[in-house]
Amino acid sequence: MVRYMKLYWHFFAAQVKVMTEYWVDFIIGFMSVFFIQFTSVYFIKVVFDHIDVLNGWTFYEILFIYGIASTGRSIHQIFFDNLWLVGRDYIRTGNFDRLLIRPLNPLFHLIADKVQQDGVGNLVLGTILLGISMNHLAFDWGFWDIVLLIVMVISSGLIYSGINLFFVTFSFWMVDSFPLMQTAFNVSQFARYPLTIYSKPIRIILTWVVPYGFTSFYPATLFTGHKNYTTLALITPAVAAIICVIAYGFWIIGLRAYTSTGN
């Protein structure tokens, strides 16, 4: 474990070094992600020019949900972005074999292979949104609340990554499962808004089937005036852990299939 952490640091440092050399790309990537996300936030702002509350949620509460989603997503994007490319850049090209002739866990190698700088745009935007909205929530922020929020954001990032990992594993059988991943990922769009606006079947899906509800909405309820979801909110880290375990188990099965059938 310590060895892997040290190794990750070396991978990370090497890539950051490259980024600083190509800083123009970094700025453009950062700005573009920031800007496209900002568009969606401004959209909410325009809507709230015409209404006071949305299904019992204030503007800042919605921003807060959005902020958790953005920061959580940024963890997924910065550190786990290479998952998207397993099919296209690794399995299809045969580069996956490169990972298998190294004395490392191939999943670790895969993830460490790429630090996605564009995710910083989401991180900054998410942090700004959290900063602004936290000040407007009727909530007394203590030290441990901040710690709890950070735990929730990390859990959110892990849920995004776990679901992604689960669907990328299909690439071992179908070469490139990108469309499948894309479809699953798009479900996360639902979780930008309070789940209470949706009908019951959709809420159940977002909670128990593709649990994107835990990436933003449930954790957010801990800090807003909506107290009906405390239990669900508090199990968020557990949900993250379970998803990662399931996804990793599935990945192992996929890997075994890959090494027995080849490509």
């Binding site: 015409h50 949305l54 894309q182 798009n186 606006i197 009908s199």
Partner: peptide, 28 residues
Amino acid sequence: AWFWASMISAVFQLIILFYFWHAVYQNS
């Protein structure tokens, strides 16, 4: 597969729009 992925995503989008705007119109 790409086609179906984009179709399903588009349908998701329509569903979200539907519920979002109904929530917006809840009080007016």
